[in-house]
Design a protein around this nucleic acid. Structure first.
Lengths: 328, 328
DNA sequence: TTGTATGCGTTATCAT
DNA sequence: ATGATAACGCATACAA
């Protein structure tokens, strides 16, 4: 390659790296020769020399044995936006799906495969968070969905979103609004969402009420059963705030199957903005995180950490998506 | 590291690589020292030396400007299963999302970033396929969704799936079954699905009929309009086979909004197994590809190509998912 | 079974 | 503005 361009190997390296000390004619000759020979810099050699990899690892934690197709679409969107954000900042992304102790692995830095790591998962896979929490000091990583406050996290502004949802229902004239969810779930966000709901209710001089979900069931079933329990308890209500869309959709199904009219008799609002919500009858009003901002924030924080700088924000903004399950 | 274990650097290398010529006591000492120092092999140096990268690139082609959340969930599932399959065969995956000529890039081999490439996309992004089709000779790659027969593709067994769908409707007593789709779309699969439908109809002694979709609209709108046109044409029908779920869902909406009862008056079947189909009213009967097999096949073909071996199969099996849009 | 020596293709330092 | 040269950390051929 060097001789094809009639220059030394160092000149080739500099020309291709955009070093300003190389004259334009020389650079042009080098670039032409490279095109002719279909030459490209060997990344491994370059990285070996530089010490930096220019790559971020992205670990997706799934539930063991979970059908990947059932993964919440938000996570896939987040995967995509994280890749895009990394790419926009000049990083490549090495993606790994990990689901159980046999394949948990986070030594990307030691192996110089990546400069840092984004870990995305639901808080349910506690074994995974145990593993990643114990990685050696000096590991650069940021996570989405971890149950622990100790980890370097980025997450939705759950409380603001829940307040948004609750206030929306209040404005639309619903008064006896019940929250279906949990304050003790490892899903920390559920607690934050309940808190937001409770704050909005109290601001309006109303009493918050939590209808608890049963543990260990699919989300939709949890919502369905909680709604059934609520109805059977005889407690009057005209609004339901589900701490996740799947829970809200389950509640919605239970309500309509029992003859409640939504949104006339009861308003329902969820949280997450899953696709299925747009297809339910009526379509579900919900709160959605901006997954593009989420990806950017994850990448920005990670890059800051790698560079030893001050990290940026860690809360992802949310917005209300008004559909048909709350009256106009 | 070598001196910490009291052996030479080559012994360290061999011990960690599992070379059988190393005695157990020595290996043990090396491994202990590595654990103590949190030492891991530098992948860049190893690859530079070996020449192989042990990595596959996965390029996801999206529509320019498309909201990543609107990407068909099947593609995300395929992304996941491809990563999983690669990982099961000892490869890592470097993921890139590419959507327009400014960021098309496929020189992973030249840069020794990967040994080969899986390209996944919809046939609509013709600029992308132009780009990848022109990559230099010797590029190892396999694709999903390309419009050209010339490329090394893996795809669903569309014809068999369409026959499955059509025969299912015939068995359930529908006779005047119309296909909503196209034989000329760049989506090659649409043609294959129409062919399968037509074959099944002819086998049953019935006349196939294609209600063409209009170009350039969102799929659901295409389905909706085609159904409207079909109804207005006065042609009698009691069954609709949509060449994609989104098209079928659009048709389903149009039918019910016009007072047709599904599945009593008209049966509807789609193709793809998208999530939204499970939530429609009634839920959509459909044909689903096994995305796990798809990921495996892509990876297997690619690895075979890298090794210069005979490629394996290229057709992914499909199965019928009976839901509520066809009568019992 | 282990050690010695070499080179993979870069980037960076020091000359010129 | 460019060339010569020295690492970077490993895997492997060869020697012992």
């Amino acid at each position: 390659m060097a001789e094809a361009a009639g220059v030394s190997q160092s000149t080739v390296s500099r020309a291709l790296a955009g070093d300003t000390s190389i004259s334009e004619p020389t650079r042009k000759r080098v670039i032409e020769a490279a095109a002719r020979l279909n030459y490209q810099v060997d990344e491994n050699a370059a990285r070996l020399r530089r010490g930096r990899t220019g790559t971020l690892a992205l670990v997706m934690i799934c539930r063991p044995g979970q059908d990947r197709k059932d993964l919440n679409p938000f996570y896939f969107a987040l995967l995509g936006s994280t890749c895009a954000a990394a790419s926009a900042r000049g990083y490549e992304v090495l993606v790994a799906f990990q689901d159980s102790p046999e394949n948990f692995w986070g030594h990307y830095q030691e192996r110089r495969k990546a400069d840092g790591m984004v870990v995305i998962g639901t808080s349910e896979n506690t074994a995974a968070w145990d593993y990643f929490g114990k990685l050696p000091e000096g590991t650069n990583w940021v996570c989405w969905g971890a149950p622990s406050e100790e980890f370097p996290w980025v997450r939705s502004d759950n409380q603001a979103g829940a307040m948004l949802a609750t206030r929306h229902m209040l404005v639309r004239g619903y008064r006896s609004i019940v929250c279906i969810g949990s304050e003790t779930s490892p899903q920390r966000q559920f607690k934050e969402r309940f808190d937001g709901y409770a704050a909005a209710m109290q601001d309006a001089g109303l009493e918050p009420f939590l209808q608890r979900i049963e543990r260990g069931l699919p989300r939709e079933e949890q919502g369905r059963r909680a709604a059934a329990a609520l109805i059977e308890s005889g407690r009057p209500f005209d609004g339901i705030f589900g701490v996740s869309d799947e829970i809200a959709l389950g509640a919605l199904k239970e309500l309509t199957s029992r003859g409640f009219r939504v949104p006339e008799d009861v308003g329902v609002v969820g949280f997450d903005g899953v696709r299925a919500g747009a297809w339910s009858i009526p379509p579900l009003t919900t709160v959605e995180s901006d997954f593009e901002v989420a990806g950017s924030l994850l990448v920005d924080r990670l890059i800051a950490m790698i560079g030893g700088q001050e990290p940026s924000s860690r809360r992802v903004p949310v917005r209300l998506v008004v559909r048909g399950s709350t009256r106009a």
